[in-house]
Design a protein around this nucleic acid. Structure first.
Lengths: 189, 189
DNA sequence: GTCTATATGGTGATAGAC
DNA sequence: GTCTATCACCATATAGAC
């Protein structure tokens, strides 16, 4: 048994039941161990949560940064980032769900380790929006609000997506990007 | 002590700590009772959660329905609904946060009571989108996806809004509606 | 309607054998 | 590295006095 296998099982259970409703017993059972044996690999339940959050954030940051550094027009870059982000999110649903919905279960001491990385992640989105404003192609009066709207429209997907629901991740990603870029209203003419 | 006072305190604590992390002890303390005394007013913790979810949903449905029945052009109607919804949500943050983030802590038997109302709520949004499509003013190929994007951009607000954060609810509501209607891209010309 | 006391069971975590 | 056994604690909920 490896630490990664345990974290993977834990992520699945945390995402299904929520951090506090999930017990060490549940996790041990999922990997066919006694719960005491888990503590050979991890030091506490909070420690597991932090590890999962960091792992999820690393995964997403890595994807987004690869897009962010490319010399593309801001609209193409942001669209690509949205598609890449949504695909990664929906293909690693357990990790993403824990990152987005369980991060508040982190106790203060652990949270202070995690927060800086999360800020950097949000900064990536804000910077991509800023580029578009500077290039005169984004219509955006408040960068902070726009980046939160952008994250909202993407992150909320984790609350309703099911892999057998008819829409594929790429399909969802493209349509969501279209809607966010063009808006709901039909253009005149 | 009334049931409503207890539910109100419970909503605040559920929204702060999450349902499972909040104890009956916490709630009793918040209303200056012994935890055993709570059971004179409510029958279980799950019962409290269901009551809060229903209360929150009632509040929001009531607001949205009042807008939905008005004979307005679809774009004006949806914009008004968004503003009304966001204002109600941000002014009743505790209720809304429990509704949006803790509903999955409901056990199956309780959930089956709650789900039909929730479906009706989502149907209200979908219908308003449909009206706009029928009137030829909304650009929307997939009603289900668009309504989820719409709910995402609004509901995510509950995860970051703080009343002393500079932006007022009405301010947030107007800007969010603008962005969702017009899109991020600047129009040509 | 609120209290004290308690039943009953699960929790995260540790000790120490193998 | 995994086990059995156990600790100390907290959870939801109930019983019954006042």
């Amino acid at each position: 048994m490896t630490k990664d296998e345990i974290l993977s099982a834990a992520a699945q259970i945390f995402s299904q039941k929520g951090f506090h409703a999930a017990s060490m017993q549940d996790i041990a059972q999922a990997v066919n161990l006694q719960k005491a044996s888990l503590y050979h690999h991890i030091s506490s339940k909070q420690d597991m949560l932090l590890a999962i959050l960091d792992q999820a954030l690393d995964l997403l940051i890595e994807h987004i940064e690869q897009v962010a550094i490319q010399p593309l027009p801001a609209d193409e870059k942001l669209r690509l980032a949205m598609v890449v982000y949504l695909q990664a999110m929906l293909e690693q649903r357990d990790l993403a769900a824990v990152l987005l919905l369980e991060h508040r279960s982190l106790e203060n001491q652990y949270r202070s380790q995690h927060i800086p990385r999360r800020d950097r992640f949000e900064q990536l989105w804000r910077n991509m929006l800023r580029e578009g404003v500077e290039q005169g192609i984004f219509n955006c009066t408040d960068l902070a609000l726009a980046s939160r709207a952008l994250l909202g429209v993407m992150n909320w997907t984790i609350t309703w997506y099911h892999p057998n629901g008819g829409l594929s991740p790429i399909n969802i990603a493209e349509q969501t990007a279209d809607l966010f870029f063009n808006g709901l209203l039909k253009r005149e003419g």
